[in-house]
């Protein structure tokens, strides 16, 4: 096959390369770190999409993460032993929660949407910790690691299997978002919502449906990350939906570059990396990360990947008017 210049800039190839490089990092860095990066990246992807492509800042992401994690946990603790079915149940749980929550929350705009999601997250946490304690075992959580069956092809009862599977899932998720963001009419409609919702209606679009669908896709992605995390840890507790973690996904999205394809990966790498390194030196690592976040925001609202995108766009596409988007 003849290699063309444009092939190297096809983001689908870049996606594969990025995740293969990340996968190989497990031979240099701790496997747990690499796995955390990939699962967190999947988690942040939905949030980044909502902020960057629709202008919707959600402080409720932990509750969707928890929906996936608890869907998987309930299945593996109470019903069966197949981790693949567990993941499927977790994703379906996230899908249902997103569909129902979206009907109410997507009607709200700007800060009302943000704070209502936060409130929804608080409700979720309360339900898991107090109301459903009979099923969730409250703060003691659900332990099901020993109940996970070994499976054929990719054995999810082993860490190696989970790492491999998570990377395959991540590539699939990135292919989906690559299509959604820049190859589909839906992606354009999402951006149009962000720019001017009313004008999208002039063209015959039901803007609510566009936002609702985007909200469901984004939060089901978070639920998928929750499922993978639950399988990996073999444990889940209400702290996964803790309101104090609500800002994390938003901060990482902004750090990496909201709405960019690789922003979540860059954001998570830096965020978790810094957290791990700085927390060994000072106890209040949040302070350092906070200052860094403010500095990046002052330098430019596009985050790390967004800023790099601008620089590369200027240099590579000098003679080519085609827009570059990562």
């Amino acid at each position: 096959m003849k290699l063309s210049k444009s092939m190297f800039f096809d983001r689908r190839y870049i996606i594969v390369v990025v995740f293969v490089v990340l996968y190989l990092l497990r031979y240099v860095l701790p496997e747990a770190f690499v796995l955390e990066v990939v699962i967190q990246s999947i988690y942040v992807m939905g949030c980044s999409f909502l902020i960057g492509r629709l202008g919707l800042v959600s402080f409720g992401q932990p509750v969707y993460l928890a929906a996936g994690a608890y869907g998987t946990a309930f299945y593996l603790y109470y019903v069966g032993t197949n981790p693949y079915i567990g993941i499927l149940v977790g994703v379906l749980m996230g899908l249902m929660v997103s569909i129902v929550a979206g009907v109410f929350l997507v009607r709200l705009s700007s800060s009302y949407f943000t704070l209502s999601n936060l409130a929804f997250c608080a409700i979720g946490f309360f339900l898991l910790q107090k109301v459903l304690v009979k099923y969730t075992h409250g703060d003691n959580g659900l332990w099901f690691l020993s109940k996970i069956d070994s499976t054929v092809i990719i054995d999810l009862s082993t860490t190696k299997g989970i790492v491999y599977f998570s990377f395959l899932i991540a590539i699939g998720v990135w292919f989906l978002y690559d299509y959604l963001m820049d190859r589909s009419v839906f992606g354009a409609a999402c951006l149009a919502v962000k720019i001017n919702e009313e004008k999208l209606r002039f063209l015959g679009y039901n803007a609510f449906n566009v936002k609702w669908l985007a909200f469901v896709i984004a939060n089901t992605t978070a639920a998928l990350a929750g499922s993978l995390n639950a399988i990996y840890l073999g444990f889940v507790s209400p702290s996964i939906a803790d309101v104090s973690k609500a800002v994390e996904a938003v901060a990482i999205s902004m750090l990496g570059g909201a709405g960019t394809l690789f922003g979540p990966v860059a954001g998570v790498l830096i965020f978790i990396g810094l957290k791990d390194i700085i927390s060994q030196i000072v106890s209040h690592w949040e302070l350092v990360v906070g200052i860094m976040l403010v500095a990046i925001m002052i330098r430019g609202e596009k985050g790390i990947v967004g800023s790099l995108e601008g620089i590369v766009h200027k240099s590579i596409t000098k003679n080519n008017n085609k827009p570059v988007s990562w």
């Binding site: 009419v185 354009a188 951006l191 149009a192 999208l200 063209l203 679009y205």
Partner: peptide
């Protein structure tokens, strides 16, 4: 993309 949006609708 502007035209595509209208075409799709």
């Amino acid at each position: 993309e502007n035209l595509k949006l209208s075409s799709y609708a």
